[in-house]
Amino acid sequence: MGEQGAISREALFANERRTTYEQQDEEPGTQMVRLYGDTAVVTAKLWLKGVNSGGPFDRTLWFSDTYIRTETGWRYAFAQASLPLTPTSTSGEQ
């Protein structure tokens, strides 16, 4: 470890989880695109099903993708996802 609390790249990837997705589907009607000048933010509700080192999973979450307009077109810049939603919050309510 270099700086106090810093983790080396090797240590970070030594614990890398392997994930296999069986399903990655956007929930119809949930996608929203917002434009702010040369920046676009896309949000939607996503259903994920698969297996990782922790075992099988089946969950729904919100995600946001950010794109930047360049001279050669739109470029993917950043993404984030919510924690898994509770079963009662996946009914289409926001």
Rank of each mutant, 00 (worst) to 15 (best):
residue 37 G to Q: 06
residue 74 W to G: 00
residue 30 T to V: 03
residue 32 M to S: 07
residue 68 I to C: 06
residue 11 A to L: 11
residue 90 T to Q: 10
residue 10 E to T: 03
residue 54 G to C: 00
residue 27 E to W: 01
residue 89 S to D: 12
residue 83 L to P: 09
residue 68 I to Y: 12
residue 9 R to D: 12
residue 68 I to R: 13
residue 69 R to H: 12
residue 78 F to A: 15
residue 89 S to A: 14
residue 57 F to Q: 00
residue 69 R to Q: 14
residue 80 Q to A: 12
residue 32 M to Q: 11
residue 13 F to M: 12
residue 25 D to N: 06
residue 25 D to W: 03
residue 15 N to Y: 09
residue 20 T to L: 14
residue 2 G to D: 14
residue 4 Q to T: 14
residue 14 A to R: 12
residue 30 T to I: 03
residue 88 T to R: 09
residue 72 T to K: 15
residue 93 E to I: 09
residue 26 E to N: 06
residue 88 T to P: 02
residue 44 A to S: 13
residue 59 R to V: 14
residue 16 E to T: 08
residue 83 L to M: 13
residue 81 A to D: 11
residue 93 E to C: 02
residue 78 F to W: 14
residue 46 L to R: 09
residue 38 D to M: 03
residue 28 P to E: 08
residue 9 R to P: 12
residue 7 I to Y: 07
residue 70 T to E: 12
residue 66 T to L: 13
residue 50 G to S: 01
residue 26 E to F: 12
residue 86 T to N: 04
residue 91 S to V: 09
residue 10 E to F: 02
residue 7 I to C: 05
residue 93 E to L: 08
residue 8 S to C: 07
residue 15 N to A: 15
residue 74 W to P: 03
residue 4 Q to K: 15
residue 17 R to A: 10
residue 8 S to A: 11
residue 2 G to M: 05
residue 57 F to N: 02
residue 26 E to M: 12
residue 24 Q to M: 14
residue 29 G to R: 07
residue 16 E to S: 10
residue 88 T to E: 14
residue 26 E to H: 05
residue 12 L to T: 09
residue 35 L to G: 00
residue 65 D to A: 13
residue 93 E to D: 07
residue 40 A to M: 04
residue 94 Q to A: 06
residue 59 R to A: 00
residue 35 L to M: 10
residue 17 R to D: 06
residue 11 A to S: 13
residue 63 F to Q: 10
residue 49 K to D: 00
residue 64 S to D: 09
residue 79 A to H: 11
residue 81 A to K: 02
residue 56 P to I: 02
residue 70 T to H: 07
residue 58 D to I: 08
residue 55 G to N: 01
residue 3 E to F: 15
residue 45 K to D: 01
residue 73 G to A: 06
residue 27 E to C: 04
residue 26 E to Y: 08
residue 37 G to W: 08
residue 61 L to P: 02
residue 12 L to E: 08
residue 74 W to F: 01
residue 20 T to A: 13
residue 64 S to T: 13
residue 58 D to F: 08
residue 47 W to F: 15
residue 13 F to H: 09
residue 12 L to H: 09
residue 43 T to R: 15
residue 7 I to W: 11
residue 11 A to G: 02
residue 5 G to S: 04
residue 14 A to I: 05
residue 51 V to C: 02
residue 61 L to T: 03
residue 37 G to S: 05
residue 48 L to H: 09
residue 88 T to F: 06
residue 7 I to K: 11
residue 59 R to C: 04
residue 63 F to S: 05
residue 43 T to F: 03
residue 80 Q to F: 09
residue 67 Y to T: 09
residue 54 G to Y: 00
residue 24 Q to H: 11
residue 51 V to I: 10
residue 8 S to Q: 03
residue 73 G to F: 05
residue 56 P to D: 06
residue 78 F to Q: 11
residue 6 A to T: 14
residue 44 A to Y: 15
residue 18 R to I: 13
residue 54 G to N: 06
